[in-house]
Design a binder for these strands. Structure first.
Lengths: 143, 143
DNA sequence: GTTTATGCAAATTCTTTGCAATACT
DNA sequence: AGTATTGCAAAGAATTTGCATAAAC
């Protein structure tokens, strides 16, 4: 994906472009999995924590990205898959390995919908599975 | 539910009984919704934060309770519904109101299961819906 | 020139641990 | 006595904010 496309995506969400915001967004796109603030910092030595944080907050508000809590103790951010900013759901489910603390995206698996009681307004859904990833499961059995 | 029943539930999970642990567990049962460490502290002026925390940690390990991340920035703890300590899933879905920061349990709604790729070992599942609760939705529309 | 974004530093909040004192068996 | 639990205080980790500088419009 070219930078221009990415710029357009951000603008499509109503996010005013800056060099830093673009960088953060690109990094999320590139990673292709949810990243924590810390991980983003590590990948962008030129960017300041608070700058990244404010970029993330802004993009969250504009629903260009979403946040998931995986139990690692820190939020992880992920670029939205679709450009449809009317549907801001986490589109797919995630898996968090309690042993190696990695978070996996199961992109093939959409989140099954449920009925909610009258009056509740839904803006997003997180479906988070936890346990052991194949690597850790194997090691755990051998041990 | 009598104290004795609650004691039995804890012991059934292999948690050695102490006054503090019982108190914490009772408080969770009583609340009937997920509580944060802070909320528990507020409800138990006699108990120390670290004591509550260690009680929670222990009960988590023994799967007498489970933890959910609702996006409020702090973990919330909830007494398990069933006494079956082989199934430690969050049995029902939760709703977090982004406006008033309350977390609701939709006990009627079980978490729909999904297929996960080969090799992943599942220990728990969180299904978290976010948005506006009826109260906040109404106020938001009027505003 | 006014508004907006950035960088730095520090405050806040939440979680977790070390250690001495206490309670339990 | 010996082990396990509790309370206090403080360390760690992550998030969030104030403010001065720098950039954008």
């Amino acid at each position: 994906m070219h930078t221009n496309e990415i710029e357009q995506q951000l603008e499509h969400h109503g996010v005013k472009l800056t060099a830093m915001r673009l960088l953060v967004y690109q990094e999320l796109k590139k990673a292709n999995r949810p990243l924590s603030l810390r991980e983003l910092e590590d990948r962008m030595p030129t960017a300041e924590r608070s700058t990244i944080f404010r970029a993330l907050t802004l993009m969250l508000e504009h629903r260009a990205i979403h946040a998931i809590e995986d139990g690692s103790g820190s939020l992880r951010y992920e670029a939205c898959e679709s450009d449809d900013h009317n549907h801001h759901d986490d589109q797919h489910i995630h898996f968090y390995c309690e042993n190696c603390h990695r978070t996996f995206c199961f992109r093939e698996t959409r989140i099954p919908r449920v009925d909610t009681p009258e009056g509740f307004l839904i803006s997003s859904i997180n479906y988070m599975v936890k346990g052991f990833c194949p690597d850790c499961a194997r090691r755990h059995c051998l041990a």
